[in-house]
Design a protein around this nucleic acid. Structure first.
Lengths: 190, 190
DNA sequence: TAACCACCGAGGCAAATTGCCACACCCCAC
DNA sequence: GTGGGGTGTGGCAATTTGCCTCGGTGGTTA
C-alpha cells in the first residue's frame, strides 16, 4: 500500500469499470482502464511496468482469457485476476491453466479484488470449506450474480432464473443486507 | 482405450472407491486404489508408471491436495484430477496452482472422470456458459452434493442445507430424473 | 406531441410449498 | 427389552409462489 500498485482493469461495462477503478484508486492503486481487448493490448504496449491485471472474462465479443498470455509475456511477474459474472469451476480451472493468478465472480468489491491479488492461491483452499452453504445463501448469491449478468434488469433476470418476476421482486425486497450493489441504471434496455 | 490407462484412485469412502474403480475398469483402465494418503504414497513407491491419478480432496484427516506434488515429482507427465464433495472456485484454483490437471465435484461418473482427464482444461471454458442455470437446477445440484457429503443421510443434509427434513424428503421424491443415485447403503453411488 | 415499449412496484387471490407436529417402522447397540 | 437415530407418511396452518391486473416512469419513434 505504500508503493502504489500499478493495475490494468479491463471491463466492458464502462460504469462498473469506472466505479471499480475509483474504488481501487482510493486504496492506493494506480489504475488504467480498457473496455475491450484491443484497447487493452494497445494500452499494454505503452506500459513500462504492471503489477497486476484485472480482467473481465466476458468482454463483449472478446474473451478475457485471451489477454492472459500477452500480459504474462510482457510482464512475467504480473498477476492476473479473472472476473466473471458467473464463474464455473471449469472456467476457473481453465483460467488458472492459462496463467491466471486467481479467479473471482462478480460482483466483487475492490477489497475482494485486492485480497484475491495478494492471496497465494496455491496455499488457499487447503482447509476445505466443509460448510455446506445453506440453500438460502446459495440461492441469494446466484440471484445476485444473475442480476448482475443482466445489468440489474429484474424482468430478464427472473426469466433467466426460471422464476416469476413478481417472486424475484418480493425476494429482493426481503433481504435487508447483502451486498448493496446499487447502481443507478435508470432503466435497462437492449 | 486401446492402450490401458494406468490409474491411481485415492478415495476414503471404500464403497465409493470400489464402485468407481470397477466402473473405470470396465472402460479399459487399470486401476489401483488407496483409501488414505499414506497408503497412496506407499503404493506410489511400487509403481513404475502412472498415467493419471484421481484424488478425493477430502481424505479424512488428509488432504488430497498434498498428494499432487509427490505424484507429479515421481511421474511428471501424470495427470491429476481432484474430486471433492463440494467444490468451490477457490479450491479449484488452489488445486490447479498445485499442479492438478482438472477438478470435479462429486458425484462424478466414470465417464465424467475420463472426460475430465482427457480434456485440455486450458482450452475449455473459453465459451462462457452464459446460461444462467435455473434456480431449480442449481438447488438440485447443491442438494445432491450436500446429500453426498453426508453419506446420503437425509436428516443431516437437510440440517446442513437449512431446510426442514420433511421438505428435503418431499423434494427428493419429486425429482424423477437426475442421476439415479440409488445405493443400498449409506455411501457410494454410481 | 403522442403513441409506443420495456421496465418497475404493488395489490389481490388461488395454488403450491414449507415448517412442524405426530406416529409407525427398522436397524443397531446396549 | 430399551433407547437412539434414521426413514416414510399424514395432516394442517402459515408462508410463498405463480399469475393477472393495474398505475407510473423514462426512452424511442412516428
Amino acid at each position: 500500500m505504500n508503493n502504489p500498485l500499478r493495475l490494468l482493469l479491463v471491463e466492458d461495462d464502462e460504469l462498473l469499470a469506472e466505479q471499480t477503478a475509483r474504488a481501487l484508486g482510493y486504496r492506493g492503486a494506480t489504475v488504467q482502464v480498457a473496455h475491450d481487448a484491443a484497447s487493452a493490448l494497445a494500452l499494454l504496449q505503452q506500459m513500462e511496468t504492471l503489477d497486476a491485471a484485472i480482467l473481465d472474462q466476458n468482454l463483449g465479443e472478446d474473451n478475457g482469457l485471451d489477454l492472459i498470455s500477452p500480459i504474462r509475456e510482457q510482464f512475467p511477474p504480473c498477476k492476473v485476476l479473472l472476473l466473471t459474472g458467473y464463474g464455473s469451476i471449469a472456467a476457473a480451472v481453465a483460467a488458472t491453466h492459462r496463467g491466471a493468478h486467481n479467479y473471482l465472480t462478480k460482483p466483487a468489491s475492490a477489497d475482494e479484488i485486492l485480497d484475491a491479488l495478494n492471496a497465494d492461491p496455491a496455499s488457499l483452499g487447503s482447509p476445505l470449506p466443509a460448510t455446506p452453504p445453506s440453500l438460502q445463501r446459495l440461492e441469494w448469491e446466484h440471484i445476485q450474480r444473475t442480476l448482475d449478468a443482466h445489468d440489474g434488469n429484474i424482468s430478464r433476470a427472473a426469466d433467466a432464473l426460471g422464476i416469476h418476476r413478481r417472486t424475484l421482486q418480493r425476494r429482493l425486497k426481503k433481504r435487508p443486507s447483502a451486498s448493496e450493489y446499487q447502481r443507478e441504471k435508470g432503466s435497462g434496455k437492449d
